[in-house]
Amino acid sequence: MYIVQPHYHAIARTAQDYERMAMSGVVAVAEPAFWAGFDRDYPETFLDYFKQISEFEPTRAAMYGIRHFSWVAVNPKEGENVALTEAVLEKMPEFFDNPNVLGVGEIGLHKSTANECKTFEMQVDMALKHNQLILIHTPHLDDKVIGTTRILEILENFDCDRSRVWIDHVEEHTVKMVLDKGYWAGMTLYPLTKMTGERAADILEMYGWERMLVNSSADWGPSDPFTLQECVLECKRRKFTEQQVLDIFHNNPCRFLSQNPKWDIKPIRIETIEEGATVN
């Protein structure tokens, strides 16, 4: 099995996670910038964090044969601080030249406040001006519908190629509105509390997997990177073919992320080998 973890907060995970992921077929991870569990006070702290995920983490992942890519952003929660966000954004474009940085994310909304909306717009604008991919976090739990609706409203004001925008953490009540608008939709799996692999497999059965991504929760909170592999197993239990599973968990991340040419991992097709044929 070949798997891409398209949303993985490596700095919050151990080397053992890398090792186990490598053993289970994970070939690459992509790490969005996120909230550290507390609100940071200084723009320079963000810049060091971006340096950590774009320069150091790739070396840690490489020890296990895993490719590591990253995104840079001020996350939705700290986006409440407009002055801090503006200061970070002054320096953020420097990271777009890093060979491992794929775009701006995860931006989005947390409580959908006026300040969050403002800094979300600022970051979408910056991403578009620099021709970057965009990864958008939608709120969890009871804020999800309001936040997702507001995000879609805000994006209407931008002239963007929707196939270059990934809206993450969709669930049963938000997936259709995202797909209908032409964006990519991501499902984030948790051990308990939010989306599960079984429900994600339901959504794949209902909506198909064109413009769909599946990722595990993998951060400093209650989470488990192997919820992704549980979903792989669930799809096989539902009689998805090996090629379909490969399309969902490897090829789709490659299709979206390769819109930034730095992502050079190609989709894979399974073929049988005739007896006596030469394998090159």
Binding site: L141, E172, L192, T193, K194, T196, E198, R199, D202
Partner: peptide, 13 residues
């Protein structure tokens, strides 16, 4: 949160 998730899981099944 656990109850919320389990109820959703039953509904999904």
């Amino acid at each position: 949160l656990e109850v919320r998730c389990k109820l959703l899981e039953i509904a999904a099944i």
